[in-house]
């Protein structure tokens, strides 16, 4: 569904994303993990059209979408959420979701009805209150709901679980799985490994802008290169020694 070919983004001398290639199969939940500063969010901004890549191509359902604007990509069926939630603070929860729903439903009554249905899917209630009054968990659900309301075929989730407590994470994991089961392909950046392990079929690991590993969550977690990227040079070897002695 989504193919990224040799994508590179330079900011001056800094190469934030370097020659990254990956694919997201249709109907999958694919994870993108890596330590802070690895370039995950930059990769998202390139795929979602908020920045143009320095080199490389992005294909969506076989169509070259490199450099297209976010609004055109939303029409094509690519939606994203933001790591730092961006609610329309002055609007109610329902109106927030309706902004997304208007993309496919030009009439107010239809858009509002669709927004209400989407809210139910992600477990949002009390839709008349201002979005600014939502808790962190509520805002994350709102991000998800707004993105879903645009009727996407692919959603890019940027750390929707960050900042949530364990019980909130447990509540939202089935919601994400249900979205996929309804036919929406998901590419998610996530730090919460419990969620990655239980949700993702396939995981790509970024470090210093490069793709260093890919595979099932279990394979990736056992990969020495991944352990070193998170814990430092030589960490994998020391861990193994420690395990042998223990």
């Amino acid at each position: 569904m989504l193919e990224v070919h040799s994508l590179t983004k330079r900011f001056g001398g800094l190469v934030a994303v370097s020659d990254v290639s990956l694919t997201v199969p249709e109907g999958s939940i694919t994870g993108l993990i890596g330590p802070n500063g690895a370039g995950k969010t930059t990769l998202f901004t390139l795929v979602s059209g908020f920045q143009t890549p320095s080199a490389g191509r992005v294909l969506f359902c076989g169509e070259d979408i490199t450099g297209r604007t976010p609004e055109r990509l939303a029409v094509l069926g690519i939606a994203r959420t933001f790591q730092i939630v961006q609610p329309f603070a002055g609007l109610s929860v329902l109106e927030n979701i309706a902004v997304g729903a208007y993309l496919r439903f030009p009439h107010r009554a239809d858009a509002m009805a669709h927004a209400g249905a989407v809210a139910e899917r992600v477990g949002l209630t009390d839709l008349g209150r201002p979005a600014a009054s939502l808790t962190v968990a509520g805002r994350k659900r709102l991000e998800l709901a707004r993105a879903l309301a645009t009727g996407p075929r692919l959603v890019l989730l940027d750390e929707v679980l960050a900042g949530l407590n364990p019980s909130e994470i447990r509540d939202i994991i089935p919601v994400i799985r249900a979205i996929r089961d309804a036919g929406v392909t998901i590419l998610m950046i996530e730090h919460v490994m419990q969620a990655v392990m239980s949700l993702c079929e396939h995981v790509h690991v970024l470090a210093n802008g490069r793709l260093i590993a890919a595979g099932t969550p279990a394979e990736v977690v056992g990969n020495p290169a991944v352990v070193e990227a998170y814990l430092g040079h030589g960490a994998a070897g020391r861990l193994q020694k420690g395990a042998a002695h223990g």
């Binding site: 908020f50 939303a74 939606a79 933001f82 609007l91 109106e95 902004v99």
Partner: peptide
């Protein structure tokens, strides 16, 4: 729809763009 999009632009342009 135009009004909803206009207010969305006022509140947060990037979020509005992401929603098409």
């Amino acid at each position: 729809r135009f009004g909803a999009w206009l207010v969305a632009v006022r509140e947060n342009e990037d979020a509005a763009r992401a929603l098409g």
